Amino acid sequence: MAEVRRQGLDALSRQISMLGASRILSALSCSLHRPSHGRGEVAAALEVAVPYGYIGSMKVKPGHRDDVLNILLNSAEGLRKVGCDPYVVCVSNADDVTILVSEVWQSKEKHDASLQLPETKAAISNAMPMLTGEFTRQEVTVDGRPPRLSPATTGSTARRA
């Protein structure tokens, strides 16, 4: 956990270094004078996007898991271009009908905007007939980003898109 927090602080430090000193001092002054400000308000004062995380699962109709995986994985590059990285697609080890997707976005606004893109709408439209309608979703606050793992060093069935 300490390593993840250190990486999050390193990323924030890189973002802060790109900002002007006056904006940093202004944001810190704002947070000191209004201690009720949370992490999101301070980031907003710094004009730094707070990473947004989304974890979802879906059930596919039997025999369609690979088809849906291909649709999801083929969407990865387009999602990266509009602010999603990492985008990880996993399959359940417990059954052959559950797919999980983990996304880290530069901001919630970028995530929401991606849902309006023609290619995203087409991917959703193509996948929907193969899904059962059973979904879960969890929106999360990203406090740090894990290091990238190569498939050779992990024992999971996650597919980094």
Rank of each mutant, 00 (worst) to 15 (best):
K121C: 02
Y52V: 02
L73C: 12
C90D: 12
L19I: 12
S114Y: 01
S75N: 07
L72H: 02
E139T: 14
G8A: 10
V97K: 10
P35K: 07
G56T: 12
D143P: 00
D66W: 13
A2M: 01
Q116C: 03
K121D: 05
N74G: 15
P86I: 10
R39N: 10
D66Q: 15
P118H: 07
L9Y: 11
L19E: 07
R6F: 03
K59S: 09
A94T: 12
P118M: 09
S31N: 10
S92D: 08
V50S: 09
V48M: 13
A49W: 06
E77P: 04
G40V: 11
P86M: 10
I24K: 03
L149E: 13
Q7W: 02
V89N: 02
N70G: 06
P146R: 01
D85R: 14
S17Y: 09
Q138P: 00
H33K: 08
T141S: 07
M58K: 02
G40W: 06
S13L: 08
P86S: 07
L115F: 02
K81I: 05
S36M: 03
I124A: 12
L79F: 14
R137E: 14
G155W: 02
V91K: 08
I16E: 01
V104T: 10
L19Y: 00
H37V: 05
K108G: 03
D143N: 07
G40A: 15
S92C: 03
S13D: 08
A45I: 06
L149I: 09
L117P: 01
V82R: 14
H33C: 09
V4S: 00
S75A: 13
D85Q: 04
E119H: 14
D112W: 10
S114D: 04
H37C: 12
E47Q: 15
V104G: 00
L72V: 04
P62F: 06
Q138F: 10
E134R: 09
R65D: 01
D143M: 15
S31P: 05
A158Y: 11
T136H: 12
E47F: 09
P62L: 09
K61W: 01
V142K: 06
R137W: 13
V88H: 00
V50G: 05
Q7K: 08
G78M: 05
T120C: 06
Y54E: 08
I99F: 10
L131P: 10
Y87E: 03
S29D: 14
P147D: 11
I71Q: 03
V97I: 13
G144V: 03
T154D: 09
L149N: 05
E3T: 15
G8W: 02
V142Q: 00
V140A: 12
V142R: 04
Q116A: 14
A158K: 11
V42F: 11
S31L: 11
I24W: 03
M18N: 12
M128F: 07
P118N: 04
Q106N: 07
L46S: 01
P86L: 06
E47M: 11
G83W: 04
P151I: 05
L46E: 01
G38N: 05
R39W: 08
G144R: 07
E47P: 01
A113M: 14
N93I: 07
E77M: 04
K81D: 14
I24P: 00
A158F: 14
H111Y: 13
